[in-house]
Every structure is written in C-alpha cells, then in structure tokens.
Design a protein around this nucleic acid. Structure first.
Length: 468
DNA sequence: CGAGATGATTTTAG
DNA sequence: CTAAAATCATCTCG
C-alpha cells in the first residue's frame, strides 16, 4: 500500500504540474525539438511540484481515490476542461477530472516517452556507475565452501536419505573410519543442509514473488505515469541485489554452523578417547614382537585396525607415537616390553607346543625370518634372565626389569623356550634389549644384529648422546 | 586439581 | 609421500 501511496503522489504531482504544458501540444513538440533547454524547464517544474504540491495533492486525492477510476473512462470532453483548471482546486472531483484529462490526452504517450527518457538520463547518470555488479568474491567464497562441505550443490535426496546413507556407511563396514561420531556428524550436517536448502528455497520464492508483484505494479503504474522498461529492469535488479545480500547472510551463517559442527565433531582432539585395553594390548603385542622393525605394512596395519576396531590411520598414529616415545625413554618401557615379549612368547609357545607334538621337536636356528637369531634357545633364556640388571634407564640407574608379578610368566618362558618352538618369535622380539639405534637415532634394518649379551646402553647413559 | 599418559595434529626433513 | 619430532588437547588417576 505504501508504494501505491507514493506512486499516487507522483501522479498527483504530475497532474498538478502539467496543466499548462499538457494542454499545449506545441510545448511538447518544442520539447522534442530542443531537448536541452526544455529538459531544464521541465526539471525545474518537477522540482517545483515536489516542493509545493506533493503532500497537498496526496491529501487532496487520497480520501476516495481508487485505481478503478484511472484507466477506464475515455472521455475526450474532459480534455478541454482540464486545460482551464487551476492548481489547488481542493475538490477531489476536480482533481479526478484533471487526471482523466491527463490520461486521455492524445499527447500522453509522447510526453511519457520524453519523461521516461529524462528519467533514464538522470537516473543513469546518478546510479549508472555502480550498476554493474561483478560476481561478489565473498559470495563466491561462501559458495565454494558450502560446495566443498557438501551443503550446497547437488542434493542427494534430502537430509533423511543422507543420514540413512551415513548410518549405512557407519554400520555396514565395521572397523572402517567413522563410527558413531562420524555418522552423528553426517546427520547433523544433513540437518544443516536441509535447513539451508529450505531457507534458500523460501528466499528464492519470496524474491520471485516480490519481483513479480513489483513488476506487475510497475506495469500497472506505467499506464498512469512514465515508467520505462529499463526502469522496471533496474528495480528488479535492485530487488535481486537486496535478496542476494540476504542470501549471503544465510550462506554465511550456514558456513559458521558447519565450521562449529566441524570443530566439535571432526577435531578429534576435542573428543579423544583412549583405545580400549584390548586394542592397546594388540598394538603393544605387535610393537614389541616387531621391535627390531616396528613398521607394520599396510596389510598389517589393516589387520591391526580390524582387530582393534580402529582406523588404519589411528594405527599409524599409534605406531608413530609409540616409536618416538619408546625411543625417547626406553627405560620407561622396559617392563612393558618384557611383559609383552613374554606374552607373545607364551602365546607362540602354546601354539607351537601343540604343533611340536605332531611334528618333530626342535630345529634351532631354522627358518630365521630376516632378523637375527640366537644360536640356542637356552641361551636366549639365560641371556634374558641374566641381562636384566644391565639395562639402564635414561638416568643411568639400574632398572629392575621384571616385576614380581611377572615371575610366573618368566618361569613359563623358561620352560617354553626349551621347546624351541616359538623361539624365533621370542628372539626377534628382542625381549629386553633395546635394538641398537643408529647415530640419527632411528631404527635401522638389522644389518648389524645387536648381540643380546651386550645390549647397547640406552641413550641416556651415553655421554655423547645426540638425542634431544 | 595437577601430573603424567595418550591420541591426534602440525611441523620438519628426506 | 612417509616418518620423526614437536606440540596440542584431552583423559586418567592419585
């Protein structure tokens, strides 16, 4: 309604202004012939109207104004009457008469086109410069981000389907990446996506509705006041700009929501869970039984990941952390090393003990699997027991390598090692002696097998220690 | 609550 | 790219 009010005000103003000129065809002809000067005149008059008569005219005509009256009647007789009328008549009836006269005047189209031209020129000169809008870099950035996050872009059948897919992905492949939290994240993302799309749709609908409304209104108005198609176009462009700025806000807040969600769900540091005991056990077992070369292959990692119900990259992380931490303080891990070495030895022994019942017992040194081997199982056991006190921790103190609780297992070890079975495993695990690290303090490929009878001193006890 | 443990990420080096 | 090293952030336990 407000728009109409304003437009009517314009119309009223036009009526007020043009009494003289409209009534005089010559003056119109003059305008067409000498635009420069007459444009000046007209502008002046327009200024005069806006000052003097807009409010007045509106106040005058509004009380019983109704659009139905405007375009319909086509009474040529009123043209003459309008010519004689004076501004400020005060009566609505009078005003309507003048308006009719104006609308039906044969020169109206010409006048409108001239006025349109003038408007075009003045408006364009004022606004034309900023009219061109290159694609907003910010909105492009937001678009790209939303696309990357999977919020915008091709809709994969709505939020529920996405959530279902996420659930299927999480449940269908046990042990694979993700799990509950990931699917939770996906579900939330789908929710955001859904909201985003419904909002976007709403905005777009509202935008086109409003645009249509305005266009209709302007078209309607163009019959009673000079409105060029270009002007309508410009109006539409303005509306679109406004709506796109709203859209940008929507995109921005969607981006923010995604960021928050991301930081909360995917930044696992915020939600770190320790692995369960069994997983740690499996990993430690592998680590200490491959202490000479604790770099599991991809297949091994996958195997471990499956066993521990964690991801491959988590396995990699674990081994990375373990290697560095073990190396940094071998002493600290000694007991753990022993424990797991014994464990694997016992396990291997119990398995192969059964096997050795079927096969012939004891073929020492046979089938050495790339690592060094001891010459005798008994030596291994002896060395194992005898060498513990020699191990030093980082501070050079003697370390008691076997906790009392471990003793029964050691005894078991004693027995099982004599079976020779599983002893490969035992020796390759470098039960107690840390493997020699080269000068750069990294694991090397066992080209120089460290002798168990003279284990290298831990880094801490070497005065020329280069580490840390 | 604080220290240490621990899983994850970032930085650096090859 | 991988691995080492450094660092971060959280968890666990006394």
């Amino acid at each position: 309604m407000d728009d109409q009010t304003r437009m009517l005000a314009g119309l009223a103003g036009l009526g007020g202004l043009s009494q003289g000129d409209v009534g005089d065809p010559d003056s119109v002809r003059k305008q067409l012939g000498q635009p420069q000067q007459d444009i000046g005149d007209i502008l002046q008059q327009i200024m005069a109207i806006t000052d003097e008569s807009l409010d007045e005219a509106q106040a005058r005509c509004w009380p019983e104004e109704s659009p139905a009256h405007w375009g319909g009647s086509d009474d040529p007789a009123e043209g003459g009457e309008a010519g004689g009328g004076t501004a400020g008549g005060g009566l609505p009836l009078n005003f309507q008469h003048r308006k009719h006269a104006l609308n039906c005047h044969r020169m109206k189209p010409a006048l409108f086109s001239v006025l349109c031209e003038i408007k075009e020129k003045t408006v364009l000169s004022i606004r034309g410069i900023q009219d061109e809008d290159p694609p907003d870099p910010q909105i492009m950035r937001l678009d790209n981000m939303l696309l990357a996050e999977g919020v915008s872009g091709p809709e994969k059948g709505g939020g529920s389907a996405a959530a279902a897919a996420a659930a299927a992905a999480a449940g269908g492949s046990p042990g694979a990446d993700g799990g509950i939290e990931h699917s939770d994240y996906r579900a939330k993302l789908a929710q955001i996506r859904q909201i985003y799309h419904s909002e976007l749709e709403k905005y777009e609908q509202a935008c086109s509705e409003f645009t249509n409304h305005v266009m209709n209104l302007l078209r309607e108005q163009s019959r009673t006041r000079p409105i060029s198609p270009k002007e309508i176009e410009r109006m539409v462009a303005i509306i679109h700009r406004k709506f796109s700025s709203i859209q940008m806000q929507l995109k921005q807040s969607t981006c923010e929501a995604v960021m928050i969600l991301r930081s909360r769900f995917l930044d696992a540091r915020r939600k770190r869970r320790n692995f369960n005991k069994q997983a740690t056990e499996v990993l430690n077992e592998y680590f200490y039984s491959h202490l000479s070369n604790p770099y599991p292959s991809e297949e091994a990692k996958e195997e471990l990941a499956k066993k521990c119900a964690i991801t491959v990259s988590q396995v990699s992380n674990w081994f990375g952390n373990k290697r560095i931490r073990y190396k940094k303080n071998i002493g600290k891990f000694q007991e753990e090393a022993n424990l797991y070495a014994v464990k694997t030895a016992v396990d291997a022994a119990s398995v192969s003990a059964q096997a050795s019942q079927a096969n012939s017992p004891a073929t020492p040194n046979s089938g050495s699997s790339g690592s060094y081997s001891l010459s005798h199982a008994g030596d291994a056991a002896a060395a194992y027991l005898g060498l513990h006190p020699l191990n030093l921790n980082g501070a050079g103190e003697a370390v008691l390598n076997i906790s009392p609780s471990l003793q029964p297992q050691v005894d078991t070890l004693h027995r099982v090692t004599r079976l020779t079975a599983g002893y490969e495993e035992l020796t390759t695990s470098a039960l107690y002696a840390p493997h020699r690290l080269d000068t750069s303090n990294s694991w090397q490929d066992n080209t120089h097998p460290s002798c168990v009878t003279s284990p290298p001193a831990p880094p801490g006890s070497v005065h020329s220690d280069t580490s840390n």
